[in-house]
Amino acid sequence: MLVVVSDTHAREESKLQGRTAEAIREAELVIHAGDFYREPVLDAFQSAAASLRAVYGNNDDASIRDRVPEVRTVEYAGVRFAVTHRHRSGDTGLVMLGRGRDADAVICGHSHRPRFDDSGGLPILNPGSHAQPRGNRPAHAELTPTEGESGSEPALDGELVTPDGESFETFRIDGESGAQ
């Protein structure tokens, strides 16, 4: 399972609770889309996750920026993601970033609003914030490998989940062919 989180905004700890904490411990791979805030939080995620791929956000301090990139490409179960915290050109810029990295989808953070949007030519996943939702529902994303439509291409079934364990949106990302 792949777990995606973002926007922790903490000084000392990961603020992982409930299902979010369980999912991080169970995941083969965790992606954090930026705004840890302080370096001990990045360290806490590295300790909790079997494997962590992260980018820095606009509120991350210099020590985090020295350790993780602003943008990265991550592949999981044959699906390729462009990962960034935010893009100044909004969704259009995110789609262009993803296309430039030959990605099947884009993962971002920044807004603290969990959403999956596949209306713009390339799917965009924002897991929201598990720790500081700012008026939105606290959330993370869980993605599980599955077979694509033809049975031969890779795909991921995903859901947005609250720390209380409530799944409130489901989606699918297909490798090499977009989302459904």
Rank of each mutant, 00 (worst) to 15 (best):
N58W: 09
R115W: 15
A139G: 04
G120W: 08
K15T: 11
N126G: 04
E142S: 02
S89G: 14
R67M: 04
I31G: 02
G34C: 11
V3K: 01
S129L: 03
G128Q: 12
A48C: 11
S177N: 12
A103G: 10
A131M: 12
A50R: 15
T92W: 07
G158F: 05
I173Q: 00
G178A: 12
S89D: 15
G109N: 12
L160D: 02
R88N: 03
G98H: 00
G148Q: 10
G158R: 00
M96Y: 13
A33Q: 07
R80M: 09
P154F: 04
R53H: 15
G109H: 08
D35E: 06
N136Q: 06
A44I: 07
G158L: 03
E169V: 02
C108V: 13
H9D: 11
A103P: 13
L156C: 06
G135E: 05
T73F: 12
R25P: 00
V71S: 07
A82R: 06
A103H: 10
C108K: 15
F36G: 06
P163V: 10
A48I: 02
G120R: 11
R72D: 14
M96N: 15
G175K: 01
G128A: 03
G90W: 05
M96D: 14
L97Q: 01
T162V: 10
A49L: 08
D174L: 15
F116C: 06
A105W: 08
G93K: 13
G158A: 00
D118F: 05
A139M: 07
V83Q: 04
A10E: 14
L42T: 09
D91M: 06
G148E: 08
H9T: 09
T162G: 05
V83F: 02
L125A: 14
S51W: 13
E26C: 05
R115D: 09
P133Q: 03
A62I: 15
T20Q: 03
E153N: 14
G178H: 04
E142W: 03
S119Q: 15
S152V: 06
A33T: 12
C108F: 08
S6N: 04
V106R: 05
R113I: 06
G93I: 02
N58M: 10
D7M: 01
R88H: 04
M96C: 13
V4S: 10
N59C: 11
R172D: 00
G148R: 08
A10F: 01
L160K: 00
R53Q: 11
F171G: 02
N59F: 09
Q17E: 11
A77F: 10
V79C: 07
R99N: 12
Y76A: 05
V95K: 05
P138K: 11
L156F: 09
G120M: 13
G135C: 06
P133L: 04
A62T: 14
E12A: 13
Q17A: 10
D117P: 00
T170H: 10
L125C: 13
G34K: 06
T20K: 02
T92H: 09
P69G: 04
I24Q: 05
R137E: 11
N59Q: 07
P40C: 02
A179F: 07
L16Q: 07
R67E: 05
R67N: 03
R80Y: 08
R65S: 01
S167C: 01
C108N: 15
P127F: 00
L52D: 00
R25W: 04
R19W: 09
R38D: 03
L42M: 07
A21L: 12
E169R: 15
R113G: 12
A48G: 03
S89C: 08
H112T: 02
L156M: 09
R80P: 11
G165Q: 03
P69H: 01
